[in-house]
Design a protein around this nucleic acid. Structure first.
Lengths: 246, 246
DNA sequence: AGAATTCAGTGAACGGTGTTTACAGAGTTG
DNA sequence: CAACTCTGTAAACACCGTTCACTGAATTCT
């Protein structure tokens, strides 16, 4: 029945085990603790065996980052599924809060994926479903773009888009529109004007900024509970986009 | 003449050399390349000798982060000194742009200081001048607070400060006011109301968010030149605070 | 001045790391 | 059943942080 040969099954299983152990080490003791020898030890094999699966430790960490992205996307999608599909505002809230919750619960993973100097972070998310390419941030932005495109948002002008960004933003606009279309929701450039694309990017800046500052403890003062500030920021972001308060 | 004994002079000199080499390694090949043995090798001594200066590699990296903070603060102050002292808007621009420029020119240092999961990052900046304590972000926020306090800013209400943040914000307000006073500019709580403190924090979120995303290449699309977006964001932040465009 | 003490630096050692190499042996394929 | 593919091994190399007993110069004490 199973097309896979015995060897292929074993290999796939070992590969899953490797990544599971690597993940466990990352969570428990940070990036530096993700050691080939530690992983091998835990799996009852020897370190050089891992080279049958990954080119190097760096490669393994790279793959690990991809796994993490996929899991994060899955988690956010699950959050999304619990919201009535007509309540756009609540959907945005859910995704943003989900991102913050995930980051705070998984600081090491967050640091690896979202605050690493390694430039080589490849495409994120399940590459087969939507192969857009190379940069990240899309887990969140995809969802945001989809939601916004499905909403007849009145654009409240002011933050003029710098002309020198038009070209770049148009590329991103196309990516967003295509992504939304691929999900079945018809949309075109008119539904997602450049100013909206620009605003989405600015929202990502603020969302990421808050979450990263919280994860790394780099807010300028201690907050007994940063959540109200986060929620207030979300309300402001949504308000600027023409969504009324929850 | 010199009060210092010969041994003290040599020690201070070696300590400077150690930090200089550590810094060079960090810049050239990243945090992982800052190894005790590499530093020692470069200095013509042996690795255990470094334990006469630092408790551990972790401790050395910690001190290194402090050095970096000091340098960054010095650099921003230098930028500031070139701006006419009555042009507040331009001063804010200078500090924010200076921070971005520094981060892009020193990505490894930025990552070590501003995106590290190590919770133990102690007070930053020269601790003797202002010993506020434990968290960071102040290099920028100090300057921002000082500038804003010296400016009769009309507060444009809207972003209501969540009540649950009042207590925390008041602590930060006190720190900011004290810092400003310590610089000779008289100020009190009225000149820096809670809403302004809140807005400063939100500005830090956006400034940090943009810079970190750029340094780590985590914007959702490639920008041929991200600077216009940064400038546009600064203009918006300043506009919200009642400053007219440059 | 000479003895006592402090202390920066050494060399050897321990256990850890990534990575390469030659080699075994099971799984698969002709 | 032979030929081949591929996962795993053991040994080795060059690193790493850290500890320890030690030397010898700089300093301090008497």
């Amino acid at each position: 029945m199973t097309e896979a040969t015995r060897r292929e099954r074993l290999r796939a299983e070992t590969e899953r085990d490797i990544r599971r152990q690597a993940r466990a080490l990352l969570v428990a003791r940070g990036r530096d603790a993700v050691t080939l020898r530690a992983i091998a030890r835990e799996l009852g094999i020897t370190a050089p065996a891992l080279y049958r699966y990954y080119d190097s430790r760096e490669d393994l960490l790279h793959q690990l980052a991809d796994d993490i992205c996929t899991d994060l996307a899955r988690e956010l999608d699950a959050d999304l599924a619990r919201i009535p599909s007509d309540d756009v505002t609540e959907q945005v809230y859910a995704v943003c809060r989900g991102f913050r919750r995930w980051a705070l619960a998984h600081p090491q993973e967050f640091a690896l994926v979202f605050a690493s100097t390694e430039t080589t972070l490849g495409g994120c998310g399940p590459d087969d479903r939507h192969q857009v390419g190379d940069q990240f941030g899309r887990v969140f932005l995809e969802v945001a773009g989809r939601l916004i495109a499905g909403h007849p948002a009145p654009e409240p002008g002011p933050p003029d888009v710098p002309e020198s960004l038009h070209a770049d933003l148009e590329v991103f606009q196309r990516v967003l529109v295509d992504t939304v279309n691929a999900r079945g929701v018809p949309a075109d450039d008119d539904l997602l004007p450049l100013s909206a694309v620009y605003h989405i990017t600015q929202s990502w800046v603020r969302l990421y900024g808050h979450v990263a500052l919280e994860v790394f403890g780099r807010f300028p003062f201690a907050m007994s509970n940063p959540e109200p500030m986060f929620d207030s920021m979300l309300a402001e972001i949504l308000g600027e986009m023409g969504f009324t308060g929850r």
